[in-house]
């Protein structure tokens, strides 16, 4: 059976940078489990390449926003375009977005294709101090992501504490502070996919029963 792919979304892929190295570690772990990783990000040039267990899909974008927030929002159109391309060609099983800059397109794609949505917040606006002129909008997007995600992964107690204001259901935020967090992420993926699979089976079963009942002349709702 094709174990499928995981789609990672980050704003930019730069060797040595925290988010890039984070994705590389996930990809390296998933490679051992025969899970393919696709990564969509912005870059200076269009690039489709396999680097260190990652199928990199880098897109360029020439428009400038009038500030960082608007530029990040403008990028979402290209994010969406790339994500759609990959979903069309690959057997994507779940979307894993990183930080608010990846939330809008990832969220829309997950809704559109009924794909589980996992989110990592490396920090949140609340924790950063709400000093940005667009802090309230950023925080709103972060909240939207949290609300829609199956799980929110954080790696610092400080981030987990800052998220308490959201009053989330227990266990939705996963604080992964130990050394082997890749394994924990893999477990989260498996759990989410299992739930999704069960849901699909339940839906299929319900549909089969409905068809059977309809065929037998049993009144259905």
């Amino acid at each position: 059976m094709d174990p499928g792919s995981v789609l990672l979304i980050i704003q930019k892929y730069n060797d040595g940078e925290k988010l890039t190295e984070y994705c590389k570690r996930i990809a390296s772990f998933l490679d051992k489990k025969d899970v393919d990783v696709h990564l969509v990000c912005f870059g200076e040039h269009e690039r489709e390449e396999r680097i260190e267990n990652i199928n990199l899909h880098e897109f360029s974008f020439k428009m400038h926003g009038d500030n960082y927030f608007s530029w990040s929002m403008l990028l979402q159109t290209r994010f969406m375009e790339k994500i759609e391309d990959i979903i069309e060609k690959e057997n994507v099983r779940l979307i894993h977005a990183n930080d608010w800059t990846a939330v809008p397109a990832s969220l829309t794609a997950s809704k559109l294709h009924d794909l589980p949505f996992i989110l990592t917040y490396h920090s949140v606006e609340n924790e950063r101090g709400m000093h940005n002129p667009h802090s309230h909008q950023i925080s709103d997007l972060e909240w939207e992501g949290v609300e829609e995600a199956s799980y929110v992964i954080v790696h610092k107690q400080k981030t987990a504490d800052a998220m308490e204001v959201y009053d989330l259901p227990e266990n939705k935020v996963k604080l992964l502070a130990d050394e082997n967090w890749e394994e924990d992420i893999f477990e989260i993926y498996k759990k989410v996919l299992k739930v999704n699979e069960n849901l699909e089976n339940m839906e299929k079963e319900a549909l089969d029963n409905e068809n059977f009942n309809a065929y037998m002349g049993v009144p259905t709702k």
Partner: peptide
Amino acid sequence: NAKEGPDITSWVLMSNHRMQKKGAELLK
């Protein structure tokens, strides 16, 4: 609905994200 920001452009781009999400929901 989208949260207002310090400028019209950020509000419009935020609204567009919500429009896109609603559109995707309808397209399903």
